[in-house]
Design a binder for these strands. Structure first.
Length: 421
RNA sequence: GUGAGCGUAGCUCAGUUGGUUAGAGCACCAGGUUGUGGCCCUGGGGGUCGUGGGUUCAAUUCCCAUCGCUCACCCCA
């Protein structure tokens, strides 16, 4: 048997309604904030991600699905969306058409990691990007939108964490301070953190090892070395999300792994999804667009993992799906009447009723069981003596009541429907 | 890439201290009198016991390998 590739999943009919439910909320919230949807190809030239995300990151270093196509072009299935959005923004000069572009997306992403709870190799994200303004109110908007979507899905076990990384200059000064602070304690660090010491020292804060965290307790914090501009924006951001009624905590340890972040970073985590608890994360990237060859343009955005969110929803039983029951099931009493059944089903479907009937020539009892299983509100019986004399029976499946109606006046049945519902 | 656990019907799981036709519940199908559901009853279909090799008179049960799944580390959404 050929099976789906490791880390990929089929979404079967029983589950698709949850996705649609979520997608509807996503569309709804983004459009209320006046964000416009953008779609980009699933693959791009590899160099886009290498340059945008950072050569040194794990994503670029060991997780990308990269391959040469038949004309020897080095392509990569997109591991995240921001680089693609920025590429499209530059390529189509969106910045010249209007000074601020507010965009959102829902799209599959690909990273070759070891699958675990809330982590797949093909996974799906929705997210927003605002390109063209340094206003911290846009940062606030990102947090607001993502929080709002999660709330609309009925999630409660949420923690919003925010931090600011400042501008590169102040961050460099801080990195030096941190380095000298840890220098003589380096031998006490875990193996992973020793590596981080050289590659990306800020990530040591991410360590789950207790000893590492103990050592860091006395460490200087980034906030102490912030430039005035970043500090001011951070203050405005906190005020804004406070007045939006969003509870948050400042987490100086929140250091995004992608190279392009500046100033604000944030994350919303759930206590209901296992160890991959970040449902969404994002931040400001004021230097990325320039880095990718565009005019210097500030930007801010976030991405959210749909599988993780759905997992949290499942575990919190956070919402119930609207029912997708049938309005009408047509029961065929005589096998010869298939064409009549077909025509009447067409009639009801044309006027937007959800209708189904039996295609397997099964017994009336089996047809009734089917109607019941599909939660049909009404059953129409066609056939037998009453059909010959121009009538058929309509049964209300909830009350059990049954009425005889003229078969050449199906519109009268429609009236009955409307009155009954 | 590292580590741990698990692989028996569509699903959730029993079971075999190695021994003839491998079980249950749910789901599915058909019946329970002539053309009518939800409950109930009866019957039925469906499993190379993940795959390959080894030990044995005999393996689904023991051993080895392999593949897959799950969770965690790492990293991230």
């Amino acid at each position: 048997m050929i099976k789906a590739v490791t880390g990929t999943k089929d979404t079967l009919p029983g589950e698709i309604n949850k996705w649609k439910y979520l997608e509807n909320i996503v569309h709804d919230v983004f459009s209320h904030f006046n964000y416009k949807e953008i779609r980009t190809p699933v693959f791009e030239e590899t160099i886009l991600f290498a340059r945008g995300i950072g050569e040194e990151t794990d994503i670029v270093g060991k997780e990308m699905y990269s391959f040469l196509d038949r004309s020897e072009t080095n392509l990569t299935l997109k591991p995240e969306m921001t680089a693609s959005v920025v590429r499209a923004y530059i390529e189509h000069s969106l910045g010249n058409q209007q000074p601020l572009n507010k965009l959102f997306y829902i799209s599959p992403m690909f990273r070759q990691e070891r699958p675990q709870a809330g982590r797949l190799r093909q996974f799906h994200q929705f997210g927003g990007e605002a390109l063209g303004s340094t206003s911290p109110y846009l940062d606030a908007e990102m947090i607001q939108m993502s929080f709002h979507i999660l709330k609309q899905l009925g999630l409660n076990d949420l923690t919003v964490k925010i931090n600011t990384l400042g501008v590169p200059a102040s961050r460099e000064i801080y990195k030096q301070k941190l380095k000298s602070f840890l220098q003589d304690k380096k031998h006490l660090l875990s193996a992973d953190s020793k590596k981080r010491f050289d590659t990306n020292i800020l990530r040591i804060f991410d360590s789950k090892v207790d000893e590492d965290q103990q050592l860091l307790k006395e460490a200087p914090t980034l906030l102490e070395y912030l430039d005035d501009d970043s500090r001011n924006d951070f203050d405005l951001l906190m005020k804004a999300i406070s007045s939006a009624g969003i509870p948050f905590e400042i987490d100086p340890k929140l250091v995004r792994g992608l190279d392009y972040y500046t100033k604000t970073t944030f994350e919303i985590i759930s206590g209901k999804v296992g160890s991959q608890s970040a449902l969404c994360g994002g931040g400001r990237y004021d230097l990325l667009i320039e880095e990718l060859g565009g005019k210097p343009t500030p930007g801010v955005g976030f991405a959210a993992g749909i599988e993780r969110i759905l997992l949290a929803c499942e575990n919190e039983k956070s919402f119930t799906l609207p029912d997708d029951s049938l309005d009408l099931y047509i029961v065929k009493l005589d096998k010869e009447l298939s064409n009549v059944i077909f025509d009447s089903a067409s009639f009801f479907r044309r006027v937007n009723y959800t209708v189904d009937y039996d295609y397997l020539d099964r017994s009336v009892k089996a047809q009734m069981r089917e109607a019941n299983k599909m939660n049909a509100r009404f059953v129409l019986f066609i056939g037998g003596d009453e059909f010959k004399s121009g009538f058929c029976n309509l049964k209300n499946m909830i009350s059990g009541e049954q009425y005889q109606v003229p078969v050449n006046q199906l519109d009268q049945i429609l009236n009955y429907f409307k009155n009954a519902s």
